[in-house]
């Protein structure tokens, strides 16, 4: 029986599949219930988030703040990349950071140690940042005009793709330890991003990861992606990334 309305149907939208066999999935169905007054609504469920994101974007653009939404799986090296980016910019460009995690201030403390202003958003059970959280974080952070704002999203390659925060661009980060086929498994995030950073390249000699193949897979989801291959740990490839950031802030 259906739990939401008590009708005599089962819902099964998750597909269970064994390689080589056809997938098993349930059929969706309509419910028929008693009469009542029906009102047309015709509203997008994400409309409120999109409206708040547009407000954030307008404010950021008005203050010439270039905001990047960093998205990846957990453990791709987002925070290390930010630490190294801030240290290498060495005060030449004002940088502020919004950190998103389910719990703890650990990432914010790491950024704080670099001297950059930072606020931590703890989402609790939430799997993504939304435009309202970023709006509130911006009030606390008050980043300076003509600065660079990094928004480090919750480590998750699925949900953050749906939620516009008002950023200028999404940057998807993949580390070479994750497997080159990740863009094929999670195409929505690669389709939503403008930049793709391939991180931890210092580990390539120890792995079978093919950078060329990973790029090819990512381009299938998004032919317009711009790539940077780098190692935040050794600094290899960081200069190109910093140059791109400087240019982007100047033309913001």
């Amino acid at each position: 029986m259906c739990d939401s309305c008590g009708c005599d149907h089962d819902h099964e939208d998750v597909t269970i599949a064994v390689p080589g066999r056809p997938a098993v999935a349930g059929e969706s169905h309509d419910h028929h219930h008693g009469p009542g007054r029906t009102l047309r609504v015709e509203q997008d469920v994400l409309a409120k988030n999109n409206h708040l994101a547009a407000h954030n974007r307008e404010w950021l653009e008005g203050h010439k703040i270039f905001a990047l939404n960093l998205v990846s799986s957990p453990g791709s090296g987002k925070t290390t990349l930010l630490e190294q980016t801030i240290r290498r910019l060495n005060g030449t460009l004002p940088v502020a950071v919004i950190e998103g995690d389910q719990q703890t201030l650990l990432d914010a403390e790491r950024i704080d140690a670099t001297g950059a202003p930072v606020v931590q958003v703890n989402t609790g059970a939430g799997c993504h940042l939304d435009a309202d959280m970023v709006h509130r974080a911006l009030h606390t952070l008050a980043p300076p005009d003509r600065s660079l704002l990094f928004i480090e999203n919750v480590g998750n390659l699925v949900c953050p793709a749906m939620f516009d925060l008002g950023e200028a661009a999404k940057v998807v980060i993949i580390s070479v330890t994750e497997g080159e086929d990740k863009p094929l498994k999670y195409p929505a995030m690669f389709a939503a991003a403008r930049l793709c950073l391939i991180n931890k390249t210092d580990l390539l000699p120890h792995l079978d990861f093919s950078v060329a193949r990973c790029m090819e897979y990512a381009r299938r989801a998004n032919p317009d992606l711009t790539f940077f291959t780098l190692s935040a740990r050794t600094g290899d490839g960081m200069d190109e990334w910093l140059t791109w950031l400087n240019d982007a802030v100047r033309s913001a």
């Binding site: 219930h33 009542g36 609504v41 015709e42 509203q43 997008d44 994400l46």
Partner: peptide, 19 residues
């Protein structure tokens, strides 16, 4: 690759209320 033009919808079409 095909370019999506339908299939991303997520909207409330109507509500039915009783009084």
């Amino acid at each position: 690759y095909l370019v999506l033009d339908k299939g991303r919808e997520l909207r409330v079409v109507s509500i039915t209320v009783d009084e």
